[in-house]
Design a binder for these strands. Sequence first.
RNA 1: GGAGGGAUGGCAGAGCGGACGAAUGCGCGGCUCUUGAAAAGCCGUGGGACUCCGGUUCCCGUGGGUUCGAAUCCCACUCCCUCCGCCA
Length: 434
Amino acid sequence: MIDIRLVRDDRGAVTAALGRRGVAAVEVERVAELDADHRARLARRETLRAEVKALSRQVGDARRSGDEDRARELSDASRRLGEEERAAGAAADAVARELTTALLHLPNLPADDAPDGAGPDDNVILRTWWPGKDGGVPEPAPERHQRVPHWEIGEELGILDLARGARMAGSMFPLYRGMGARLLRALTSFALERHADGYEEIRPPTLVLTETMTSTGHLPKFSDEAYHVERDDLWAIPTAEVPLTSMHRGEILAEADLPVRLTAVTQCFRREAGAAGRDTRGLLRVHEFEKVELFAYTTPEQAPSAHADIVARAEGILQALGLHYRVLDLCTGDLGTSSARTFDLEVYAPGCDRWLEVSSVSWFRDYQARRAQVRYRPSGGGGPRLVHTVNGSALAWARIWAALVETGRQPDGSVALPDCLAPWLGGDTVLVAR
RNA sequence: GGAGGGAUGGCAGAGCGGACGAAUGCGCGGCUCUUGAAAAGCCGUGGGACUCCGGUUCCCGUGGGUUCGAAUCCCACUCCCUCCGCCA
């Protein structure tokens, strides 16, 4: 969530910043009003509380000096004040809850340099890359044999079995088989080993507490998007960002330990509630997929370079895989709630002729850190400060799988995979029909 | 799942109804001594909210309760440890 003090001190700036992403001014106004009300009630409560405490001390003194009458008198007075205090406290708490709820629903302030815009159409394409670009090769025009969608290739080669996946779990739960399954394992190993030089490998839980989902901003606003295990009140994570943000929840880190850089592979679960029927063929949009995530807790000063490093690593993987991709600077209208600045990486899949989002690299400033209460103690002295969090996928495999298979399809129907994966594919990078 | 024990500051660990946000030790920071370092000694050292910047208030796993007053008593829950059972 955003800093309530910003609303208090410069409401105009907050209203303007949130207005860039379509938040109505009344929402900010409401938060400001609740905050003022809350502070007034808190002051009242604390004054009463201070009086009760002072009287209680006098009760003890009177009793020690044997003056029972005075003690009784004082304790009666204290009891009456105590009742008042409880009422004032309950009122303050009620307002506090309203305030927290309102604040939890406010999105993050966009970064100053995030482009303005109303929606996906206003995102800015920063650059496009394809194999051989630097050597003067023109932007690829897909060959005829590449114009086959991955769901058909998957069936031809026996490496993707969507019908049987649906039998087990319903539609949009893919089942990979044979070399198709092995390809996923290869991608994960390849990526994790590439990131091992700077990022600690983590294997977190994939079912988490409500608090953990709230820390990243996935709750309370987007509960429809997540799978919920009711009996145990646990949530299936939509991304490793969720557990990783809570890894240091409630902690005060030493500045010398920052940045803390983590990488994790997890299953990711998304209900895709609002997207019924849109781009749902094959692996374009699935309820369960595997993703390698890069994550960092940083000081505010380190955040920009940590953000850039994750973008560079995600791009590095795409380049190693020889995929045609582009980098988008998300406009204010398309930014995720918790993010101040996001770069999306989209890969071109020639078979279905679509740009597929395979990574979203975001800088959250202290928005998530405030929710999760992750702070650090500055080396130069002074009180604890909130860390910044930064994360991005490198990468989401389902769509990479689709793009690889479509891009690598040969005239004879076989699929050539990039050499960098050979060590995990048993040395064989060509997939042929069984 | 059953039976016991526990949860206190960065860490260890006292406190078990009245000035306790909390002894002591370690750690950390500063100073003295020293050519420098170590050792020794002295001083300081949790977090949050509000503030008329004087202070006020909250936090001893979490949430309730008892009381004039709760770290301390009661109830529930969570987590950790030991033992038993079950189990990939």
